[in-house]
Design a protein around this nucleic acid. Structure first.
Length: 153
DNA sequence: GCCAACGTTGGC
DNA sequence: GCCAACGTTGGC
């Protein structure tokens, strides 16, 4: 089982939105970057876990943990003309975009701020701190455990 | 295949 | 709101 980090803008879809859903589960869709798409399509697997990261907001940082509850599938919204995610070059038969299902595991009482992670030499190789604009990215087991063990949440 | 123009991400 | 980083598009 692997660990990941998923970015979302809390004004659009934050951890509180996920928590408010009846089954606290949702498709992780709208990813329109090919490297991130490849992770969704090929690498994220049911049983994996991911940090839910809040970007483009007052305090960017890790807001909680989700379980990946289904492997990558063709993105449904991209097939629906009425959806803002609609892409005419995408179809279920020849998919361009993919989604996984995520289910809320833990909503942190306090966000672990990006600002703190940036100052941690143990995390200097983290993709979050070195790969700008990648909205789906791997987290090593060491990084995952280090963050949970060393930052109040 | 190169590269300039352009658009998006995301921290500050 | 600004701007750095960087991915995408399209002319040539």
């Amino acid at each position: 089982m692997k660990y990941w980090l998923l970015k979302s803008e809390p004004d659009t879809f934050g951890i509180d939105h996920l928590a408010a859903l009846p089954d606290q589960q949702a498709p992780w869709d709208g990813v329109r970057n090919y490297q991130a798409r490849n992770f969704l399509r090929d690498e994220l697997k049911a049983g994996d876990q991911a940090f839910f990261y809040h970007s483009s907001c007052k305090v960017p940082g890790i807001a909680g943990i989700v379980d990946i509850s289904a492997n990558g599938q063709p993105e449904k919204a991209a097939s629906q003309p009425e959806s803002p995610l609609y892409d005419e070059k995408h179809s279920e038969e020849t998919p361009r975009w993919f989604e996984v299902q995520v289910k809320l595991k833990t909503r942190f009482a306090q966000v672990i701020p990006l600002q703190a992670l940036k100052q941690d030499s143990a995390l200097s190789d983290m993709a979050l701190l070195n790969r700008s604009r990648l909205s789906v990215q791997p987290v090593s087991a060491e990084e995952w455990q280090h963050i949970l063990a060393n930052y109040p949440h």
